[in-house]
């Protein structure tokens, strides 16, 4: 994944300004920075949801602006707000998204959902309507939704925001498993967590790349 001089300008201010870096395959790449630093804007640009006003972004060689549909087949995205339907069960939500990614075999889809959910310890809550789950459980389920089709690039915007200590432990476990097939980019405002979990850290400040380094462990 490569960003070259990526900018996003909103009327009078920059959400991102000339940000450039590359992320290697199977990296766990942490984006840190205070609120308004541009983390979510960057994730949305990578996810094809927001168009940059300048620069170029490629994922696995595909241009995010010119080949968005091909890029969408390679990525999995969990945003700040959940993309799950409250009235459907966890199983129904996950199989629905999995089928939109081309997995048409219902039994295979169910097995995959069950396996992924077990990584986050929620396999016994899959038949509950999502609306009945706590916000932490819903967040876990939404992260699984993003990763359900084994994307080559997993983009997680503030994945830790609703997770308790148990959820954080599951998240670590999940990342270890996810990096076998994915590159993971996640954002958080907690530098402590990002240092601990990531293989590389990017710190954004006011839309600019302030620091890019390996974490001190």
């Amino acid at each position: 994944m490569r960003l070259s001089n990526v900018s996003k300008k909103y009327e009078s201010r920059f959400g991102l300004r000339n940000v450039s870096f590359t992320v290697d395959e199977h990296e766990i790449f942490g984006l840190a920075g205070p609120n308004g630093a541009g983390k979510s804007t960057l994730i949305k640009i990578l996810a094809t949801l927001t168009k940059p006003t300048g620069g170029k972004v490629t994922i696995a060689g595909y241009d995010v602006l010119r080949q968005p549909r091909l890029v969408k087949g390679l990525i999995g995205v969990s945003l700040h707000n959940s993309l799950l339907y409250d009235e459907l069960t966890g199983m129904e939500n996950l199989t629905y998204y999995l089928r939109l990614h081309g997995c048409r075999d219902r039994e295979e889809a169910k097995d995959l959902v069950f396996h992924k959910s077990s990584l986050f310890g929620i396999e016994d809550r899959l038949e509950d309507p999502v609306g009945n789950l706590s916000s932490g459980m819903r967040k876990r389920l939404d992260i699984i939704r993003a990763a359900i089709h084994n994307p080559r690039l997993l983009l997680l915007d503030e994945p830790l925001s609703e997770l308790d200590s148990e959820g954080l432990e599951y998240f670590r476990r999940f990342l270890r498993s996810a990096r076998e097939y994915s590159t993971v980019i996640f954002s958080t405002h907690s530098l402590e967590v990002v240092e601990e979990i990531s293989s590389r850290v990017c710190i954004l400040k006011m839309g600019e790349l302030a620091e890019l380094r390996y974490p001190e462990k």
Partner: peptide
């Protein structure tokens, strides 16, 4: 309103 439209926008479908 529910924010789920992004799920459709992110899916690799036409």
């Amino acid at each position: 309103d529910k924010g789920t439209l992004d799920g459709l926008r992110l899916a690799p479908i036409s």
